[in-house]
Simulated assay, not measured.
Amino acid sequence: MPEFSRLEPHVVAEILRICETMLDEFDQSYKHSFRLTDVHGFGDFDSAQQLAADYRRKAAGTPESARERMQQFIDALTQLRD
């Protein structure tokens, strides 16, 4: 079994184009993710405030949150592209 694969230049160019397109999409989503923590309209009850806090936590601030997941995808795709 060979230790490396050889790709034709046009295949490499197409892979790079796809990676760049995906990175652009992820970058836009990442920028939009900063608005996800702006939750309001849940009311003044304690349960409503807890629900709003849960939505903020799912948006950002933990390794499993949306913003951090997007950054993980960006990092992985950047590494793959490079």
Results as ranks from 00 to 15, higher is better:
residue 47 S to F: 09
residue 17 R to K: 11
residue 30 Y to P: 09
residue 31 K to W: 06
residue 8 E to D: 11
residue 15 I to R: 15
residue 63 P to S: 05
residue 1 M to Q: 13
residue 8 E to G: 04
residue 50 Q to Y: 05
residue 16 L to Y: 11
residue 23 L to G: 02
residue 46 D to V: 13
residue 75 D to S: 13
residue 58 K to C: 14
residue 45 F to E: 15
residue 34 F to Y: 12
residue 3 E to C: 10
residue 5 S to E: 15
residue 36 L to R: 10
residue 73 F to L: 14
residue 57 R to V: 00
residue 34 F to E: 12
residue 43 G to C: 03
residue 15 I to N: 07
residue 37 T to N: 07
residue 27 D to Y: 11
residue 22 M to F: 09
residue 52 A to L: 01
residue 3 E to Y: 09
residue 64 E to W: 08
residue 71 Q to Y: 04
residue 42 F to Y: 10
residue 32 H to T: 06
residue 48 A to K: 01
residue 50 Q to E: 12
residue 79 Q to G: 04
residue 39 V to N: 02
residue 74 I to T: 02
residue 66 A to R: 12
residue 23 L to P: 02
residue 37 T to M: 11
residue 27 D to G: 14
residue 22 M to W: 10
residue 9 P to A: 07
residue 5 S to A: 14
residue 46 D to M: 14
residue 44 D to L: 08
residue 69 R to W: 03
residue 39 V to Y: 06
residue 12 V to A: 11
residue 75 D to H: 10
residue 60 A to T: 10
residue 58 K to W: 14
residue 2 P to V: 00
residue 35 R to Y: 07
residue 24 D to Q: 14
residue 50 Q to P: 00
residue 72 Q to R: 15
residue 16 L to W: 08
residue 19 C to T: 04
residue 57 R to W: 01
residue 75 D to W: 05
residue 4 F to Q: 14
residue 64 E to I: 01
residue 80 L to I: 09
residue 12 V to P: 01
residue 48 A to C: 02
residue 20 E to T: 07
residue 69 R to C: 07
residue 40 H to Q: 12
residue 54 D to G: 06
residue 40 H to S: 11
residue 51 L to K: 05
residue 78 T to P: 03
